[in-house]
Amino acid sequence: MGGQVEVSGATAAHGGTRASAAIGAIARAARGLRWYVRELMGDSRYERYVAHLAATHPGAPVPTERQFWRDRHAEEDANPSSRCC
């Protein structure tokens, strides 16, 4: 996407650079929103766990994503957390 923005900026002088800046800002906001939703809902949890293993226990066996979520739910089963009233 970055490439496209530059091309349009090069062809259309001033208005184009402003437009490309706007597109850049929108793209950044969209990336930020995607990052936030994935983090909040937990989509990225497995990636973070793999990164954590690589940093702290290099060489340790890495579970598959399927197995990771099974283990995680099994732990929640064994140790429930509360929601508020």
Binding site: Y49, R83, C85
Partner: peptide, 25 residues
């Protein structure tokens, strides 16, 4: 830090988690 229940979590994400957990009926 064990990558699971103890895990440094971005403050903005944790704010959302904490709010979702305390907000109820």
């Amino acid at each position: 830090d064990n990558g699971k229940d103890f895990e440094p979590t971005d403050r903005r994400v944790l704010f959302g988690h904490h709010f979702a957990a305390i907000a109820g009926a």
